[in-house]
Design a protein around this nucleic acid. Structure first.
Lengths: 336, 336
DNA sequence: CGTTCCAGGGTTAACGTTAACTCATAAGCT
DNA sequence: AGCTTATGAGTTAACGTTAACCCTGGAACG
């Protein structure tokens, strides 16, 4: 079908190896031969077959990115930065999304290993039910980096954000702005959400408040749970005057419920989200949120993985914790 | 490193081919041998090397998805549905984003071809400056499907939405709702935006209005251009009482500008977007928009590609046009 | 008893490329 | 002249699988 090195070699009556050397700029080749090879390659519209090359070099220059979902803008952002970071190094990214299903996560990871990826970046499902998966990856000696979601006790590289700090930052900001009753719309039962809740608790305690369970409402990842959760909070007496939301989508849902109830932001209730997703600043009420350094996370994970791929012997595992920062917009009061 | 069929064969004193046959469920193998092979494979934690298999079968079971950007939720949605559609057929998806840069598009496509993808789905950059790219793909006889963005005159399969209809639907809806002065925040200089503008013009003409250039403001893909564009429109005299926005992000930006100016939606101005992106219904003012059948687009493109991959001889090219539908929410007036 | 047939394997040669050598030839040096 | 050295190739054998064919021994058949 398409031209191979053998075609070029036959046409030019040289050996395939000579062609290979020219195309890789390796070995000693006379200028004359080099030019002939390159010309013929261009004429035949030659394209290297990476499958064949990978088989012998044992490198695919492909890294696998395993995400819970595409459409969550946090993960989309991660995917973009990872791809951009590895591209200059000649790597490609295969993305797969397992929809928060541990079984699918395992099967997707297996498929990637079978396709001989050079490394993996994984935002693993929570709670991690398939620890055998990581044992298998480790056995194959394929380097991998966990991102965003840590596996407790695993000896693996990790890049994520300090979720305790997120909770503390958001809650203290609300208190600083004069909120005397700060509620929390917490996320699902996963480590990262629990840590944010923990940060919320610590901040309250440090400022002399008690955590009251009626002000902590369980929820999920998406905006619908923020909406229903907020409606629930509005019925609590006394009504909270500040809400720390697990993430921005939840905060968006919460804001919708608040406005629907005829209340004003931030006069009646202040809201803080987390994530600093793209739309959070074009909302009707631009969202005060905690930036978790999404781009830096992608870049750092990618760089860490490249480093691990380059250094054959397993370096000691590293855990990188990004320090979150508060982004003040208009969903929290200005005055103290 | 990791076990190969040869390891299994050596251990069991059978030939590699026997192992291969067992693992593929092909050829005649006695139950006894089959069991021995499978057991040993499990013991060794054997994983098929797809690179080697692909080299000989000439199929990678990988399809390439070439997108202008990840983070735009439309493309993220497409990516998700494509991946979900092809997964049951054993295919994987390699996504690459070229950031609206034709050169990068060409180089990413080349890299995918080199990696021997079985097919390509491309939302090509606009205007398509690298037609040679598609000639090269065609020469290689790799099936491909264009999505969302068509190349004028190309003999290629295509799945997209009827952009004229989007413009007409949105504009007529605004007129039906009593808007006497409908403006348009148009997108960038690409075919798809021009078609929406054309639909806007046609609808105006059909209802007896003239298109006035001062009510058509140029912009881009993102919300910032919607914001600045709307601020510009608000200064026009008389002020429009209805705006058809090129897409939802632009509409979100426009709404922000409108609210900032102290005007009310939909009482003072009605806004229609296009795309029906996820956040459009959780905004402070839920957005009336035109749904472009994003999921169906992904599914149809994937199915079309699979069909083309399956049927070796090139079937006749097909162009599938999705009919958009209006999704009425609260950014347009109810009363006529 | 010879022939056919089939189950259950095995052999050989790819697939397209690269790693690791080897081998002429000519040039440079003593 | 005889030795080393550099140059510009070529040879051979992988990499891990599969396609396409070939073989053997026994059962079935007339």
């Amino acid at each position: 079908m398409s031209a191979t090195m053998m075609d070029i070699a036959r046409d030019l009556k040289v050996s395939v190896v000579t062609v290979s050397k020219v195309l890789r700029n390796q070995g000693r080749i006379s200028e004359a031969t080099r030019k002939r090879v390159l010309r013929r390659a261009k004429q035949l519209n030659y394209q290297m077959n990476w499958v064949a090359r990978s088989l012998v070099t044992r490198r695919t220059y492909t890294i696998g990115l395993l995400l819970p979902e595409f459409t969550h803008s946090f993960f989309a952002e991660v995917a973009r930065t990872v791809a951009e970071t590895v591209r200059p190094h000649g790597y490609h990214v295969v993305i797969s999304c397992f929809e928060e299903d541990p079984e699918q996560e395992a099967s997707e990871a297996t498929a990637m290993l079978a396709r001989q990826v050079d490394g993996l970046i994984i935002a693993t499902s929570q709670p991690p039910r398939r620890l055998d998966l990581f044992k298998r990856i480790q056995e194959r000696k394929v380097p991998y980096v966990l991102i965003d979601r840590l596996i407790a006790g695993a000896r693996a590289c990790f890049v994520g954000v300090d979720n305790h700090a997120i909770g503390e930052l958001a809650t203290e900001h609300l208190i600083d702005r004069g909120c005397g009753c700060v509620a929390h719309l917490r996320g699902p039962e996963v480590g990262i959400a629990t840590e944010r809740l923990e940060g919320y608790r610590r901040a309250l305690a440090r400022r002399g408040f008690r955590t009251e369970s009626r002000y902590v409402v369980a929820g999920g990842h998406a905006d619908d749970t923020g909406y229903t959760g907020m409606r629930q909070l509005l019925k609590v007496c006394p009504m909270p005057d500040g809400v720390f939301c697990y993430n921005d989508p939840v905060a968006i849902g919460a804001i919708k419920a608040i406005l629907e109830a005829g209340l004003k932001l931030p006069q009646d209730i202040s809201v803080v989200g987390a994530g600093n997703i793209h739309y959070s600043d074009v909302l009707a009420v631009p969202l005060t949120t905690v930036d978790q350094g999404t781009c830096r996370m992608g870049v750092l994970a990618a760089e860490l993985l490249l480093e691990r791929i380059a250094s054959k012997q397993s370096m000691k595992t590293r855990k990188i914790m990004i320090t979150p920062t508060l982004v003040e917009r208009e969903s929290t009061r200005r005055e103290a």
